[in-house]
Amino acid sequence: MMISHQPFAGFEEWIRLPIMAIEDLQHAVLGAQLDVAQLSGDEIGGSLMFSHGVDKTFSTARIDGNVSLLGSLPETRITLGIGLHCPPGTLLWLKEVASGSTSVWLSGETYDAIYRSGSTYLTVSLTEERLEELAADLDLVLDAKQLGETRISSRPLDPAALALLRKLYGRLHSGEWSEALAPSYIGELALDVMIEHYARKPRIMGEKRHDVGFARIVNRARTYIMEHLDAPISIAELARASFTSRRTLYRAFEDLLGETPQTYIRNLRLNRIRHDLTSAHSDGATVTDIASRWGVFELGRLAGDYRKLFGEVPSATFNRYGTLCATLTNMALCA
């Protein structure tokens, strides 16, 4: 059945399916090809939930009964997983896992799990490029080297994060909805938690010697960014314009500027917006007009990023300079 909430941009509706028989678990991870087996005479039950967006897919299950899931995961996507609740005897690749365990599957790798009654898990599948971009949005680095091979993480999830996710996904499977508990929100929250778990902070400038070609790469990228700052800029496009790979592009920005390409672009746009906010009163533009001029349409996110960089929200800058301009106009000093 379809969940009753307003869909968020970029997401389809979430789907909730009751688990009535062992065959229902063939789709326990959306996009995978799973062989399933019932391991005891206990009644099979629980629920499956999915959300398939443009660039990522969430799957979560609460399983009643003892089952085995074995098969190949999506060929073109990386899959990250969290064991939200793992009763004793829960196995992944025949290794016992506890609640809070996290796992990485590279594209097309084997999902081999034995779940005990009461298990709850969550997975998200997305491309390596998209994962790097989302990590960069959080000012973190998460590339193939950082992810490593298909594996169970040696570190359990942060206990506070695990407790929050268990509470939210427990409500999700129980059908307890509210505006404050939008399904897309908890999907994004879980993904952020997984990224923060696996990613690292960018290296500090001067931590290592600069590659001689990095300056050339960054200069080409900066030129392209300046020419396209008012339009969407993907990492793939930026890498092509810089005549390099995405991975080397990240390394060059991180080594020379101490930040990711996305952070550089975001901060440059914020500075352009601030410049226009301080001179917009003569042309009647609003904060929304100015933000959209530079390709920024999510005003809530703009306010947070702007405050983080400048210590105030855009409207405060706009209003302060509007008052100043009015005063100077009365003095015949502001056009």
Rank of each mutant, 00 (worst) to 15 (best):
Y185E: 07
S184D: 15
F243V: 07
H85F: 05
E196P: 01
I22E: 12
L172T: 11
H197W: 08
T323E: 12
T60Y: 08
E43V: 08
F58Y: 15
L157P: 07
E109M: 05
L328R: 13
L256F: 03
A231M: 05
I265V: 12
D305F: 00
S234T: 15
L73K: 07
I265A: 04
R247F: 06
T288P: 01
D139C: 08
G322I: 02
P87C: 09
L238S: 09
S282P: 00
E188R: 13
S4D: 15
E188H: 10
Y121Q: 03
I44K: 00
L34E: 09
Q146C: 14
W294C: 04
L92W: 10
Y264A: 13
G170E: 02
H210D: 13
A239W: 06
L73I: 11
A144N: 07
I63E: 05
L39T: 12
A335V: 01
I63S: 04
T127I: 00
R216D: 10
T127N: 02
T223F: 00
I152F: 05
G45C: 02
H281W: 10
A280T: 03
L164K: 14
K56C: 02
Y111S: 03
Q6T: 12
L73A: 05
T120Q: 13
D64P: 00
K201Q: 14
T244S: 14
K201M: 08
A285Y: 04
P232W: 08
L73V: 07
D42M: 08
T223K: 04
P7D: 12
S154E: 12
G187N: 13
L229G: 02
G45W: 02
W294Q: 03
D305Q: 11
T323W: 02
L257T: 05
S68A: 15
E227N: 03
S184A: 15
F310C: 06
M20Y: 10
G213I: 05
Y111T: 03
G118H: 11
Q33N: 09
S279E: 11
Y198M: 08
D192F: 00
A144Y: 02
D305S: 07
V313W: 00
R247A: 09
Y306L: 04
T263Y: 02
L157C: 05
T288C: 01
P261K: 11
H27S: 11
Y306K: 07
D211C: 01
P74I: 11
D112R: 11
R130M: 08
R274D: 10
S103A: 13
P156T: 12
R130W: 08
I19L: 11
G206T: 07
I233S: 03
A160N: 11
V54M: 09
I63V: 15
